[in-house]
Design a protein around this nucleic acid. Structure first.
Length: 215
DNA sequence: TGCATGATGTTCT
DNA sequence: GAACATCATGCAC
């Protein structure tokens, strides 16, 4: 197998504002390891949340039991349950005490596709395995039990490595965030332009992998 | 093909 | 009691 994939992003990478970290996460490989196997995705869509200054952030109204991880040191996973059936995963950014984070919204499954598909019954196409925050968590088998996991520590069930093939700056686009009602228009959502694996909910004007008129 | 809506449970007011 | 960083389905056209 490929043994060169154990390289991890250093904690210092996350010890910066989420708005700066988010675009640099595009193209990086995020993976989960469990007794069932390993699933890895190449990140193609993320969203930055600026903590206390951001009305849309869970941390906007201060620290609670749920968002405590966001207030901790960088490089940890903040996992929460939403809408009664889905999980979402964030990577905590900024120094200890500053609750900024980046939501992982979509990715391309590049390893363990069979296992990912098994976790998502219903006969979905490969493209839809991790296309959207809830689906991404489902494909990787992420639940609240992984809340607070250190993604910078070797041997952790969750990890993230550098982009094997870094996207060109011109491919990275920024635009309004999705699925929120407050400060949704802040351009803190980043994605790889034209990538088929970017989520396309609510038609945000983003041209996705769905065939365009150009066919 | 595209929009509107129900599902489902945790968290906060 | 209301809101919620979502997803899958049903119906209209």
């Amino acid at each position: 197998m490929d043994h060169g994939r154990n390289e991890l992003l250093p904690r210092a990478f996350f010890d910066r504002p989420a708005t700066q970290v988010a675009p640099e996460l595009l193209g990086c490989v995020f993976w989960s390891a469990s007794p069932a196997g390993r699933v890895a995705v190449r990140l193609v869509e993320v969203e930055a949340y600026e903590g206390e200054a951001d009305p849309a952030s869970h941390a906007f109204r201060g620290q609670t039991a749920r968002n405590a991880v966001m207030f901790g040191p960088p490089g940890h996973a903040y996992v929460y349950f939403t809408y009664g059936m889905h999980f979402c995963v964030n990577l905590v950014c900024g120094p200890d005490g500053r609750p900024s984070a980046v939501l992982l919204r979509a990715g391309q499954v590049i390893e363990g596709a069979a296992l990912a598909a098994e976790r998502r019954p219903g006969g979905h196409r490969d493209r839809d395995l991790a296309r959207g925050p809830g689906r991404l968590c489902q494909a990787l088998g992420i639940d609240r039990g992984l809340d607070g996991t250190d993604v910078c520590a070797p041997g952790s069930p969750l990890g993230i490595g550098p982009a094997p093939d870094p996207p060109a700056a011109a491919e990275i686009r920024a635009g309004p965030r999705v699925g929120i009602t407050r400060a949704a228009d802040w351009p803190l959502r980043f994605w790889l332009d034209g990538d088929a694996y970017v989520s396309a909910y609510k038609g945000n004007g983003v041209v996705t992998g769905r065939r365009t008129s150009a066919g």
